[in-house]
Simulated assay, not measured.
Amino acid sequence: MTGIDRRAVASRVVRLLGGTMLMGVAVAALVRAQLGLLPLDVLHLAVGRHTGWTLGGAFIAVQATLLMIYLPLRIRPGTGTVAAAVIPALSCDVVLASMPAPQALAWRLLLLVTGGALFAVGVALYLGARMGTLPRDGLMLELHRRHPRLRPAPIRVVADATCLLAGWSLLGPITAVVDGTVGPATLLLTALLGPGIAFLVRRIKPYPTCAPHHRAPG
């Protein structure tokens, strides 16, 4: 491996680790904002409350279950698939354990904006590393690859809405709204994150090698 190759690999790993850590920090910020969680995290929180697990533990369990989607589509998971399922969960739990929930609305709004922006950047970075994707993101990219007319942004919006409805029903519609799990921010994040991430991905130069989300041979 040449020096250039080693630098390229190191840069990809940095993108993967940095992006997935940002995702976890972003989720924790949104939890503390209490204005509404990311759609998939509504489902994660619902699973956590029903099982007694932390939000991070529920994140890992849900992602491991969703990974079964890869089998019928013959999508090969990669290093990034594991990293994106574990690192955000761990970093989220660490930040939640040390970050108190602010009471002032101004601080909560700041956490909301910061969390949404960090999540979009984190997802774009880890996708740009081209080392594997979370099941939902892998499905989004695979559907776009097979059917180019289906753009990634609307696919993600539909997936987010489905996760939101599932988590909301598990938590109980009234309970989820009262405790801030589902709120106005949830609808905004559901509508804006897909287009925002697609915008950032187009502007982050991807690496041409090692795209493990492609179909396995045979």
Rank of each mutant, 00 (worst) to 15 (best):
A198D: 12
H144C: 03
P217N: 03
G180R: 06
G48Q: 04
G52Y: 08
V182M: 01
D41A: 10
A129H: 04
G183V: 13
R12P: 05
V62G: 04
R49T: 14
S91T: 15
F119W: 06
P208G: 10
L109E: 10
L200E: 02
T162N: 02
A46M: 12
L67D: 14
T190C: 08
V177K: 05
L193E: 07
P152M: 00
W107H: 13
T114N: 07
V31T: 13
A83H: 03
P152E: 04
C163T: 13
A161Q: 04
L105K: 00
L134T: 14
T79I: 14
P195F: 02
W53F: 10
P100M: 09
A33T: 10
R32M: 09
P72M: 03
V14M: 09
T65V: 15
V201P: 07
V27C: 11
I60M: 10
L143S: 00
H214N: 11
T181P: 06
A120T: 10
H147Y: 13
L127C: 11
G196Q: 00
G116V: 09
L171V: 11
T65C: 13
L16K: 08
A124T: 04
M131E: 07
P195K: 02
R49D: 15
G80S: 07
G36S: 09
T133R: 00
L134G: 15
L150M: 06
T20L: 06
R202A: 14
L38N: 05
A33Q: 01
D137I: 01
